[in-house]
Design a protein around this nucleic acid. Structure first.
Lengths: 221, 221
DNA sequence: CAATTTACCTTCGTGGTTGTATGGAAACGC
DNA sequence: GCGTTTCCATACAACCACGAAGGTAAATTG
């Protein structure tokens, strides 16, 4: 059966230039993103990822220690959406308009999530991977939720002190309502992003909720 | 190597009585629930499930065609939480108090989700399984979300017609806000239910949101 | 109550995936 | 230009999960 052709020189792949190597690394991560999103993390083998990138498993095991390492590298190409929201809090021009700050932070978050790479990676993290090896997506989701809740709480506390919040709703409750709404919106949209545009849909919800939470006759804006 | 002892009677397990068989079936489903929740669906083998139930894989393959079949059987032991909410809409005593109907439906849903079996299965469905074989958890989640949104829309439309809804918020937006908030709450709570009790926490959110959506001076209640 | 079917479970064979070890060729430092 | 390092392909060994074959006793039928 085996026709061991002696002339069949095994074309062991040559060394690439540094930029080429970096490109294959990116290609591997792109391939992982695509297949993880399509078939789920658990059901995709490293072989499939390598083939999609035009490589073999050797390339994968050169650039990454294993599947978990590749997964983490894929995550590190994006930043968490609410990390921005937390960092945004330092903006001094919005210090006395916390509700407007929330609105803008949400808009930034939506725009970021609509970038294809961000959308894909977060969809994978939320809906297409189970806890596996040293990867615990639920812990990451908890961190994201806690960060968002903390930031929103600060904003709404500020708003309450400035008299911009309805008196019958505590800042804590307002923050939890907002965080749950945003969390649900993200989950729902990431399940099938073709249904609607996150920016328009999300902003209408955010603005409606903020309008509900505002004092009936706000001092300004 | 092979010491084929002719006396080594293979103790193939005998046939159980009907009730015993049903008990093993339930034990297998219980075991699946526990291990799916702990290690995720993809990373648990049928061997582990069988051992946890004190059986071997043969028992699994007798009662179920494969892993997907077992998974579906596990799902069918519970009903979707918002299925109740949808069915609840027919209650005539609440026909003219739709917001109160929503409140009660949410309370029912929370209580149901706090039952250990419901909680476990939904946690598995939302956070511990990827789309696999003919199982598509995302499609199920979409159905649940659509059902809930449809029911809420009906309620809020009714509320609007009765003049119980704030004029600056359309029934559509109110329904989407509520659905997103509930969805986020479910996801967050199912990630780690030890953090807080769903009923108290959830009801405070639901009541706060309904208060926000109510007309400032409601005709009644 | 005996023969036969059927339910229930154990054990074995196979394919696919992982990790590692080996090899080889071009790129880089000097 | 020469040795070293980088980058990737191939080969090999171990494992694990799946599915089916095989075997026994309860249930059923007459």
């Amino acid at each position: 059966m085996r026709g061991p052709d002696p002339e069949e020189a095994l074309i062991s792949m040559a060394r690439r230039t540094k930029t080429e190597a970096a490109a294959t690394r990116e290609a591997l991560l792109d391939a992982a993103e695509a297949i993880f999103l399509e078939r789920g993390v658990a059901r995709t083998s490293l072989e499939q990822i390598a083939r999609q990138a035009g490589m073999t498993r050797g390339a994968v095991y050169w650039h990454f220690r294993n599947k978990a390492d590749l997964f983490q590298a894929m995550l590190q190409r994006v930043r968490m959406p609410f990390q921005e929201l937390v960092e945004e809090i330092g903006d001094p021009s919005l210090a006395e308009r916390p509700l407007e700050a929330i609105r803008q932070a949400c808009q930034r978050g939506f725009e970021r999530l609509e970038l294809p790479r961000y959308r894909r990676v977060h969809a994978i993290l939320l809906h297409h991977c189970e806890t596996f090896a040293e990867i615990d997506p639920l812990a990451m989701q908890n961190e994201m939720a806690d960060d968002a809740l903390g930031a929103l709480r600060d904003y709404f506390l500020c708003a309450a002190h400035l008299g911009q919040l309805r008196e019958d709703t505590s800042p804590e409750i307002a923050a939890r309502l907002m965080q749950a709404m945003l969390s649900g919106l993200f989950h729902d949209w990431l399940r099938n992003h073709e249904r609607y545009a996150l920016r328009e849909h999300g902003m209408s919800l955010v603005e409606a909720q903020l309008r509900l939470l505002m004092r009936s006759s706000p001092p300004f804006r």
